[in-house]
């Protein structure tokens, strides 16, 4: 545990002493802020029109109309930013040959992987936490429900963690950071659009594709549904990503 902590601490320090964390977080927040702003504007004009029809007012729901699409937008921005956070984690160690230090220290490969994973997770946590500022406005001027929002954030966090696990895996494959980021983008997009293919599929295949796709699981969570299958999906995704990373690193040394 202490070893994992040591690696994490160092990686977090590297994120915040280099421009990486600041640039990624800033761009992320600007984009999220813009999406939030346009959603609120739209919600505002919609509520003005709806105020003339009493039955339409009943259906006004800020959670459904602002937060749910916002969470979807954030998930896309995460897809674009997380590969940039994870691309250096192993690729850079390999390029600089600093991995020789790590692998000749009395720590295990698993501890190194987990240390790096938790460091990225911390940056993700900070990024999501900062978007919480937006909710100050909705709570000050409206009355959204808190539970579905927290549930949506949990979904974003788990999804982001899965992105990170996949990003770390691709970082362990190469010593080139651009290659690592590009492969991560590609793989994440593929997992995202898997559900599109379900339109033409049927039967068993449709179920499998649906289960594998990020969207299906995330959809439930943004609508405030907390289902263990979704959580299990993300956790197994994370486990699988980190497990593959471990296999790659070990096999590279044994070759």
């Amino acid at each position: 545990m202490k070893n994992i902590w040591a690696i994490s601490k160092k990686e977090v320090k590297t994120y915040f002493t280099s421009p990486i964390a600041y640039v990624v977080t800033t761009v992320f927040l600007v984009l999220v802020g813009f999406f939030f702003y346009s959603l609120i504007l739209w919600f505002n004009s919609y509520s003005l029109q709806a105020s003339r029809y009493p039955e339409a007012i009943q259906q006004l729901d800020i959670n459904q109309m602002v937060y749910s699409p916002l969470f979807h937008n954030i998930s896309i921005i995460l897809l674009l930013t997380i590969p940039l956070l994870t691309m250096r984690l192993f690729a850079e160690e390999k390029k600089r040959q600093t991995e020789e230090l790590l692998f000749t220290c009395p720590i295990t490969v698993n501890q190194i992987i987990l240390g790096k994973f938790f460091a990225s997770l911390f940056v993700l946590f900070v990024m999501l936490l900062l978007t919480g500022v937006l909710s100050l406005f909705t709570f000050a001027y409206g009355n959204p429900e808190l539970a579905p929002i927290l549930n949506g954030y949990l979904g974003l966090f788990l999804m982001g963690a899965a992105f990170i696990a996949l990003g770390i895996f691709f970082s362990s494959l190469t010593e080139n950071q651009v290659v690592s980021a590009m492969l991560t983008f590609g793989a994440l997009l593929l997992f995202l659009i898997l559900s599109w293919a379900t339109g033409s599929a049927s039967g068993m295949l449709k179920d499998v594709l649906n289960y594998l796709s990020f969207v299906q699981h995330f959809d439930d969570m943004t609508r405030g549904i907390l289902d263990t299958t979704d959580i299990v999906y993300y956790l197994s995704f994370i486990f699988f990503g980190l497990f593959l990373t471990h296999s790659v690193i070990q096999s590279r040394r044994w070759r």
């Binding site: 320090k13 280099s18 600089r96 991995e99």
Partner: peptide, 29 residues
């Protein structure tokens, strides 16, 4: 029980000398 100096120095250029040594001491338990 081994101290190892590889041929290519395994240094993190963005760390200070002190914080690097502190980090290495930590991962060497």
């Amino acid at each position: 029980n081994i101290g190892y100096l590889p041929e290519v120095l395994p240094l993190y250029p963005e760390m200070t000398v002190h914080s690097f040594l502190d980090f290495v001491a930590e991962i060497k338990q």
